[in-house]
Simulated scan of single mutants.
Amino acid sequence: MSRVEQAIFTNMCMIQDAYGRVLVQDRLNPDWPGVTFPGGHVEKGESFLDSVIREVYEETGLTIKTPQLCGIKQFQTLQNERYVVLLYKTGQFEGELRPSKEGNVFWIAREELNNYTLAGDFEKMLQVFETDSLSECYYQGKDESLSAQLL
């Protein structure tokens, strides 16, 4: 049995300001619409760290500093690829906030997050972002019978 598999790497970053607010993006993508944190795909040959800094800048106008890896989300796609989302968080950034083609971005109090329509399964990912004893949101099963485990 081969240990090699196709994989897609992406990232997402929880950015918190000095007032305890989090930066969210109201995504326009019909494949995964709703409020979530900014992030995107890792380009071939790009480090994971550089990719999250680039993606946050492209989607928000902010340059983040010292993002810390705090967890992962992973699942198998219908094409049998492993889809990995590297979860980062930081409280250090500079720049002027601006929207992008991905969607509008804005600051909200963390406790207000559930007042918005969240992207599918984002609540599970939030638990990994915010719980030190969790490091992974892992989906197992096939097609429609996927179930999430928080590990």
Rank of each mutant, 00 (worst) to 15 (best):
Q79N: 14
S100P: 12
L86A: 14
F48A: 12
T36K: 14
E59Q: 12
F48G: 11
Q74E: 15
Y116R: 11
D17G: 02
R82E: 07
R82W: 07
G120W: 06
K142W: 13
D143K: 10
R54Y: 01
T117L: 08
S145E: 13
P99H: 03
Y139E: 06
W32I: 08
D121N: 14
G71Q: 03
D50F: 00
F122A: 09
S100Q: 06
V128P: 02
Q92L: 15
E102N: 12
G103W: 01
C70N: 00
Q25M: 14
E55V: 14
N80C: 09
T63Q: 12
R98F: 07
L126A: 01
G95M: 04
V105I: 03
K89M: 10
D143R: 08
V84W: 02
E130K: 04
G34K: 08
K124R: 14
K89N: 08
E102H: 13
T131M: 05
Q25Y: 04
E112W: 02
Q92I: 11
M125Q: 11
V35F: 12
S133T: 04
T90S: 01
N115M: 04
V42C: 12
K73P: 00
T66I: 05
N29L: 11
E81I: 02
S135M: 10
P33C: 06
K65M: 15
D17T: 00
S47P: 04
R82H: 07
K142D: 11
T77R: 01
V105E: 02
I108Q: 06
G39Y: 14
G141W: 01
L62Y: 08
E111Q: 12
V85Y: 05
V24E: 00
R110A: 08
M125C: 14
N29Q: 04
